[in-house]
Design a protein around this nucleic acid. Sequence first.
DNA 1: AGACGTTTAATTGTCTGACAAATGAAAATT
DNA 2: AATTTTCATTTGTCAGACAATTAAACGTCT
Lengths: 245, 245
Amino acid sequence: MKIDPTTPADLSQQIAKAIRDAIISGALPVDERLPSEAELADQFSVSRPTVREALKRLAAQSLIRTQRGATGGAFVNRLRFEDAYGQQITTSTLLLSMNDVSFATACEARYALERACAPLSATRRSADHLATMRAEIHRQVQPGLTDEAFCASDVAFHRALVDAAGNPVLSYQLAGAVEAMQPLMNMITFTARSREMIIGLHGDIADAITAQDAGKADAHLAALASYTQQLAQDVIAKRDARHNA
Amino acid sequence: MKIDPTTPADLSQQIAKAIRDAIISGALPVDERLPSEAELADQFSVSRPTVREALKRLAAQSLIRTQRGATGGAFVNRLRFEDAYGQQITTSTLLLSMNDVSFATACEARYALERACAPLSATRRSADHLATMRAEIHRQVQPGLTDEAFCASDVAFHRALVDAAGNPVLSYQLAGAVEAMQPLMNMITFTARSREMIIGLHGDIADAITAQDAGKADAHLAALASYTQQLAQDVIAKRDARHNA
DNA sequence: AGACGTTTAATTGTCTGACAAATGAAAATT
DNA sequence: AATTTTCATTTGTCAGACAATTAAACGTCT
């Protein structure tokens, strides 16, 4: 394992890259133990703090885990879907908030992706997923629910819909798109009327998935997408009116 | 900014989390300068190396950037889509390889997502995207092309198709799904016959997008999806036959 | 006064050496 | 044989130091 001398960067960055490349290429298999920090320091001809900074970079990406003690050390970590979810959601959320992505753009992406899952979900949905969707709908009809709790339940409903496709890769990709929308959704103040409309569409979608009717599921999702866009436009229109007044 | 005393973890991990939460919550806006390492060490009552390890964790996620010199320091980084692409691709690739995700599962996810983009691409495609797609098709018909180069061009074609939707959120999400498939695609040895078939479908897709015909684009994408699945099945069947012989 | 070097202070990057804490293995003891 | 103790290894943390970089402050010359 050699460090790249052409790009003059931080040593810890170069070392992290060298180890990361070794992991990606498969040269370092899962659960393989890396040399100890002292050995790595020798190999790369740097000090231990520099090696440690490199290892912390890798740990931040869940590429390695460390263990103290006699038989401890740094081990190549098996990246699990659940671990990747969190990072995916964090990154997606920051991307939306830091790049002034409009509600319309994020919403369009989310529903386009979700509609891609619907046919698979209709085919493969298990009783478990259907039960989750029904439970969330039941939660949403409760009158005392805050807007935040309503949005959270909305996310849970859509997560169940996506998970019903039974494809972990799809679930992973969608996690970012769906969850990152939540802060944007929270901007909307849901009236009793709009909640009723959304819950109704949720019911329609759940019915279609239960009946394994992909076409109906898609149609109701499309309706939900356009209704959500309309709600957001109303909020923006009201805000602009107040601003210009 | 306080560290969480309930979960006994590494100090650098706790500090990284505290700063990360501050960034996500918006308490630290983009381009805001963090206190110097010495000041952070004082604030958190730890040593400078510990603070540095925390900062390196954040740097690994592109949440901060550092600059040396008198007016230097660590600054909250604006997370750009281009920066996130790379991380997304790395993570997706490792997820597939480390979790023994089958070709069928990954392929299903990829084409499901890609078909979600197609209607938008058909509506919004620019001359630029169409030109890129045609150029990649032109590259693919060249006879001397290696399988790796063919796959790379395939990825470029599909990237252009996705980018044509004009939605950066979609492009970001799809980057992982499309690019992470490439190592799996490289397992396939493309015969002249199969290349011809794929290039033909690429042409059909490009024609449909050019004609803004979403239905046809979807149909040809579906055909490409099933043909790709079939190719992979043939490879697996041959490998199993050789293995049992 | 203005342009141009020079100094200086601040900050990150790196190194050295040390000690604490955890942990499993080996050795000693019962 | 089971249990306890000791010990070696490794990561986690600290303190202090110096090098490298950078921009601002300062001084000098025209």
